[in-house]
Amino acid sequence: TTYYDVLGVKPNATQEELKKAYRKLALKYHPDKNPNEGEKFKQISQAYEVLSDAKKRELYDKGGE
């Protein structure tokens, strides 16, 4: 599973699309609303952290993490 899959976006997604997808999923899986989905929330946050940063995203796209 790639970070793009976690957020449900395509690899060519814009920053705005990433932000929108992250917010939607973060609300859905937030531990306050969904106590059993803490791990999913962490995955979503990690994916967004990497993909929202241009340098980290470039490194990730080249095969790094």
Results as ranks from 00 to 15, higher is better:
residue 54 A to P: 15
residue 64 G to D: 13
residue 52 S to W: 04
residue 59 L to K: 10
residue 53 D to L: 03
residue 32 D to R: 09
residue 11 P to F: 11
residue 57 R to I: 02
residue 27 L to Q: 15
residue 23 R to T: 12
residue 45 S to D: 08
residue 13 A to D: 02
residue 43 Q to L: 13
residue 64 G to C: 15
residue 30 H to W: 05
residue 46 Q to F: 09
residue 65 E to I: 14
residue 1 T to R: 13
residue 64 G to N: 13
residue 52 S to Y: 06
residue 2 T to R: 05
residue 38 G to M: 15
residue 12 N to H: 10
residue 8 G to Y: 03
residue 25 L to P: 00
residue 54 A to G: 08
residue 58 E to F: 10
residue 52 S to N: 06
residue 13 A to R: 00
residue 34 N to H: 09
residue 64 G to H: 13
residue 4 Y to V: 01
residue 1 T to P: 14
residue 47 A to Q: 00
residue 22 Y to N: 00
residue 24 K to S: 12
residue 36 N to R: 09
residue 20 K to H: 10
residue 50 V to L: 06
residue 64 G to T: 14
residue 65 E to G: 13
residue 38 G to L: 15
residue 5 D to H: 07
residue 40 K to T: 07
residue 26 A to K: 10
residue 65 E to P: 11
residue 46 Q to S: 07
residue 10 K to I: 04
residue 31 P to N: 08
residue 22 Y to K: 01
residue 7 L to W: 00
residue 64 G to S: 12
residue 6 V to I: 15
residue 2 T to I: 05
residue 64 G to E: 14
residue 47 A to N: 00
residue 31 P to H: 06
residue 45 S to Y: 11
residue 60 Y to G: 03
residue 36 N to Q: 13
residue 58 E to Q: 10
residue 4 Y to A: 01
residue 40 K to W: 11
residue 51 L to Q: 00
residue 40 K to R: 12
residue 17 E to P: 00
residue 32 D to F: 07
residue 60 Y to M: 04
residue 20 K to P: 01
residue 58 E to A: 11
residue 47 A to G: 01
residue 25 L to I: 04
residue 14 T to A: 04
residue 9 V to P: 00
residue 40 K to C: 10
residue 52 S to I: 11
residue 24 K to C: 11
residue 14 T to F: 01
residue 4 Y to E: 01
residue 27 L to Y: 12
residue 18 L to E: 00
residue 36 N to Y: 11
residue 6 V to L: 13
residue 34 N to K: 06
residue 22 Y to W: 08
residue 58 E to V: 05
residue 52 S to K: 13
residue 23 R to M: 15
residue 34 N to T: 05
residue 51 L to S: 00
residue 10 K to W: 07
residue 32 D to A: 11
residue 33 K to P: 04
residue 55 K to N: 11
residue 30 H to F: 06
residue 47 A to F: 02
residue 19 K to G: 08
residue 31 P to V: 06
residue 42 K to Q: 13
residue 53 D to F: 02
residue 18 L to G: 00
residue 17 E to S: 05
residue 17 E to M: 07
residue 30 H to M: 07
residue 45 S to M: 14
residue 1 T to Q: 14
residue 55 K to S: 11
residue 50 V to M: 05
residue 16 E to H: 08
residue 53 D to T: 04
residue 41 F to T: 02
residue 46 Q to N: 10
residue 29 Y to M: 04
residue 51 L to T: 01
residue 29 Y to D: 02
residue 53 D to I: 04
residue 30 H to Y: 05
residue 5 D to K: 06
residue 5 D to L: 05
residue 9 V to D: 00
residue 8 G to H: 06
residue 31 P to E: 07
residue 63 G to E: 12
residue 45 S to C: 14
residue 28 K to S: 08
residue 48 Y to R: 01
residue 17 E to G: 04
residue 52 S to A: 09
residue 18 L to W: 00
residue 36 N to S: 11
residue 35 P to M: 06
residue 14 T to M: 03
residue 43 Q to H: 07
residue 57 R to D: 03
residue 59 L to Q: 13
residue 48 Y to K: 01
residue 44 I to G: 01
residue 5 D to N: 06
residue 60 Y to V: 04
residue 7 L to E: 00
residue 35 P to F: 07
residue 10 K to L: 11
residue 9 V to M: 04
residue 15 Q to S: 11
residue 31 P to L: 05
residue 2 T to H: 09
residue 35 P to K: 09
residue 15 Q to L: 14
residue 32 D to G: 09
residue 65 E to L: 13
residue 4 Y to S: 01
residue 63 G to S: 12
residue 42 K to N: 08
residue 57 R to H: 02
residue 28 K to A: 09
residue 32 D to L: 13
residue 44 I to P: 00
residue 27 L to W: 08
residue 14 T to D: 05
residue 32 D to S: 14
residue 22 Y to F: 13
residue 14 T to P: 04
residue 38 G to T: 14
residue 58 E to K: 07
residue 17 E to W: 03
residue 63 G to T: 13
residue 19 K to T: 14
residue 39 E to Y: 08
residue 37 E to T: 11
residue 10 K to S: 13
residue 18 L to S: 00
residue 48 Y to V: 02
residue 11 P to Y: 08
residue 5 D to I: 05
residue 43 Q to K: 09
residue 55 K to F: 10
residue 57 R to A: 02
residue 56 K to E: 08
residue 33 K to Q: 12
residue 11 P to E: 09
residue 14 T to G: 04
residue 35 P to D: 07
residue 48 Y to A: 01
residue 39 E to V: 08
residue 21 A to W: 02
residue 11 P to G: 05
residue 42 K to F: 09
residue 38 G to H: 14
residue 29 Y to L: 06
residue 15 Q to H: 10
residue 5 D to G: 05
residue 60 Y to D: 03
residue 41 F to M: 06
residue 8 G to C: 07
residue 48 Y to G: 02
residue 23 R to Y: 14
residue 23 R to F: 14
residue 36 N to K: 10
residue 53 D to W: 02
residue 4 Y to Q: 00
residue 19 K to Y: 13
residue 36 N to W: 10
residue 18 L to I: 15
residue 21 A to I: 04
residue 28 K to L: 15
residue 46 Q to R: 11
